[in-house]
Design a protein around this nucleic acid. Structure first.
Length: 480
RNA sequence: GGCGGCAUAGCCAAGUGGUAAGGCAGAGGACUGCAAAUCCUUCAGCGACGGUUCAAAUCCGUCUGCCGCCUCCA
């Protein structure tokens, strides 16, 4: 049974989609004002895995996300880069799509943009006014939080207390300091804006997500995700305006929130902001490495980023890659049935662990625990595969094929390829060349010419080709 | 000030009632011509103090220390 932690109830609940076998999910995207950073991408990776797992379990998943492509930040940034706001938004939207592709994150079924949905948004605002949930003030339209009785249910806040604790000065045209904008008046005629019954302006920040999710997924859908930092006020406000608009509860059945990524204590770098953009990180680390780093932590926990920590996690990943390579290499061999009696319990062991892997994932997508289980599998596989006493009979070979398939399938759920980063460079001719050189080394070894054999190995290593002698013979792989 | 969360070995990190997964690093050993990889062994009693319970890292309380949100944020 799949259980999901629901922020709304602060409990793990059994996951039951509104429509059997269909899952509709909406994940808050980002304001396309700059290149994405690890924080954005962490969420995207977490929800990517959630989606992959749901699909793996046979659900038909509709995954919608959005880009906020108009607001003050976009305007400010556009000025800085001397671009038109819409061009700037488009530039960073494309950059983000490139980033997620590079990270092997599956694309959403649809990405909504605020500026593509102005009509829908205006319609929603008008309905909220008509229903008495919103009011017009000076070209702005505000949602009146007092009109919505459930206000605060997601973030666990009490309206009275919040008002009492408000630090912000009451903006003159708001009735209540917590009221939030559905439509923002734009006075400067030079600035891009849209006409509306209430004046020229833009949508407020929260309304776009409500309008687009309702349009694409309906008034009530299964999962709404985002970072913990969006719980208040963004998601709280989304609930208020959406449920007030449609009269349907719940707007989203399960609210999921991923932890944030924080930077290690000292601000040692002046340009931290830049350094941790996704593209910068991708120059240094592979998609597998970044994904693995993220997935070895529970999605709801905050992550403290440091280079040291990711290097650590890279080594852990490498162990799994080595296991996969050993498996792959042994599958190329032919079985020797001289010893058919020798039996191995490996397949049974792996199947047992697979159960545990699913149990971990069923428990609120505990990828950290599941990865621990993959390591237990790897150790057991290594024991058999790297054993010089190994009797590779046809039964074992069949089992290993199945294990290899299972192993890959479980990594696929995490979007991990376990490919050496530049293996795509290894054309056939390239491989033949390496094999040839290794053949020479083999001769040297046969002649006990260790000096030459080691020189070949060291030199290849310098060229990025790692050579190791295994019970199966000499194997090689391309590194970094 | 309000709301929420966290505190597990040198480091990272699972575990939410029955006596601590996994990884990195360390130590010892096996394998190897030497390496690499791999395997084996070893390495914590869970921030502090109380309480509940036959039994708590896990539940309750207090304290200490971190962090997030309350303004834009994935």
């Amino acid at each position: 049974m799949l259980k999901v932690y629901n922020t709304l109830t602060r409990k793990k609940e059994e996951f039951k989609p509104i429509e059997d076998k269909k899952v509709r999910m909406y994940v808050c995207g980002l304001t396309v004002q700059n290149y994405s950073h690890l924080g954005h991408v962490r969420g995207a990776i977490n929800y990517d895995v959630i989606r992959r797992y749901l699909e793996f379990k046979g659900y038909d998943v509709t995954y919608i996300s959005n880009f906020t492509d108009i607001n003050e930040k976009i305007i400010a940034r556009a000025e800085l880069e001397e671009m038109k706001p819409m061009a700037l938004a488009y530039k960073y939207e494309q950059a983000f799509l490139e980033d997620i592709e590079a990270l092997n994150i599956k694309k959403a079924d649809h990405y909504c943009k605020a500026t593509d949905n102005i009509d829908q948004i205006q319609k929603m605002v008008q309905t909220l006014i008509d229903k008495g949930y919103a009011y017009i003030a000076d070209g702005n339209v505000y949602f009146s939080v007092e009109e919505f009785e459930d206000y605060g249910k997601l973030s666990g806040r009490d309206l009275e207390q919040m008002i009492a604790g408000t630090r912000k000065k009451i903006e003159s045209d708001k009735k209540n300091p917590l009221d939030f904008a559905l439509w923002k008046n734009v006075e400067d005629p030079e600035v891009i804006a849209w006409d509306s019954p209430w004046g020229r302006g833009w949508p407020g920040w929260h309304i776009e997500c409500s309008a687009m999710s309702i349009k694409k997924l309906g008034s009530s859908f299964d999962i709404h995700g985002g970072g913990t930092d969006l719980i208040f006020p963004h998601h709280e406000n989304e609930i208020a305006q959406s449920e007030a608009y449609s009269g349907v509860k719940p707007f989203a059945k399960y609210w999921m929130h991923n932890g944030t990524v924080n930077l290690s204590g000292d601000k040692m770098s002046k340009s931290l902001g830049n350094f941790y953009t996704t593209r910068k990180l991708l120059e240094k680390y592979s998609a597998d490495q970044l994904r693995y780093f993220i997935l070895t932590k529970h999605y709801r926990s905050p992550i403290e980023y440091s280079d040291e920590e990711i290097e650590n996690s890279n080594k852990s990943l490498e162990k799994l890659v080595n296991t996969k390579n050993s498996l792959k290499n042994i599958l190329k061999q032919s079985p020797t049935d001289s010893d058919k009696k020798q039996t191995y319990q490996l397949l049974e062991f792996i199947k047992g662990k697979e159960e545990k892997y699913f149990a971990a994932m069923d428990d609120d997508f505990n990828s950290a625990q599941a990865i621990g289980i993959l390591h237990e599998m790897a150790t057991e596989i290594n024991k058999v595969v790297n054993n010089s006493e190994l009797k590779l009979n046809s039964k074992l070979l069949e089992d290993l094929k199945e294990i290899y398939k299972t192993f890959n399938e479980l990594f696929e759920i995490f979007g991990l390829t376990l490919e050496s980063s530049s293996s795509s460079l290894s054309s056939d001719r390239y491989s033949e060349l390496v094999e040839y050189v290794l053949e020479l080394r083999k001769e040297a070894r046969a002649n006990e010419n260790w000096e030459l054999a080691d020189k070949i190995r060291d030199d290849l290593n310098k060229l990025g080709i790692k050579v190791h002698d295994t019970p199966r013979g000499t194997e090689w792989e391309i590194i970094n």
